[in-house]
């Protein structure tokens, strides 16, 4: 009996020593004891897959492909993403002139959306206030970050701001792949609000709001 208990003890100790505890860090892939169709021969996004010659599961669409999509509604008209429309390019149709005003109506919800997107995608460099004092500037990682309150940028039309967000400018790369079109316009609207916060005067306020300030 004594030998049995000692053997059992050594066995348990051995298992614990080899197998470790729950949550121990390990470089090895989790074991699958019962496969149970957990891994199936199907395409999963962004994985290697031998089905296509280039080995990607997420294929780039062939050139000229038109996405199946829900069109944007701008000014009561449906606009698809392949169209040369001001909402997609920031330019007047068939010209290189930038449009002056945001094609979307400026509402509270639209600006709130813009604020959120601005704080995600723009604030790391330009800072939450747009002064160009984001974290990359603070740690000295980037030499040049534009101050969005510069006269030069304030004088941009809405279309030009949209174009810079989409295509980039100077060392800034475009954000067209990360931010959807309506969200880029929302950022444009929110940037206008940020700029106005520096340019406005008390006289611009409605009388009842002005009274509150004093």
């Amino acid at each position: 009996m004594r030998y049995f208990i000692i053997t059992l003890g050594i066995l348990i100790l051995g298992v614990v020593l080899i197998a470790g505890r729950r949550g121990d860090l390990s470089r090895n892939r989790p074991m699958q004891i019962f496969p149970d169709m957990k891994r199936q021969a199907k395409l999963r996004p962004q994985t290697a897959n031998g089905f296509f010659p280039n080995g990607f599961s997420s294929q780039l669409p062939p050139e000229g492909t038109i996405a199946q999509e829900q069109p944007l509604t701008v000014g009561g008209r449906a606009v698809y993403s392949f169209e040369d429309a001001p909402v997609n390019t920031g330019r007047q149709t068939g010209s290189t002139n930038f449009i002056a005003l945001n094609p979307f109506p400026i509402t509270g919800g639209f600006l709130a959306r813009g604020e959120r997107e601005f704080n995600i995608y723009c604030a790391p460099c330009h800072g939450r206030t747009g002064e160009g004092t984001g974290i990359t500037k603070k740690i000295g990682a980037m030499a040049v970050v534009a101050n969005l309150h510069d006269k030069r940028i304030v004088e941009f039309t809405d279309g030009e701001i949209f174009h810079v967000i989409s295509q980039g400018k100077g060392v800034m790369q475009g954000y067209a792949s990360q931010i959807a079109v309506p969200d880029r316009w929302a950022i444009t609207g929110y940037l206008r609000a940020l700029q106005l916060s520096r340019l406005g005067s008390v006289d611009d306020l409605a009388p009842e709001l002005r009274a509150k300030l004093q």
Binding site: F4, S26, R27
Partner: peptide, 30 residues
């Protein structure tokens, strides 16, 4: 006694190890 001890150890081992809390948690590939 021996049977109970063995069964207890095996049950405890299965309960503790045969779960994603052991298999998956802590997976940190290079």
């Amino acid at each position: 006694i021996g049977g109970t001890l063995t069964a207890g150890a095996v049950t405890a081992g299965v309960w503790y190890y045969f779960t994603p809390k052991y298999f998956r948690v802590g997976y940190q590939p290079i």
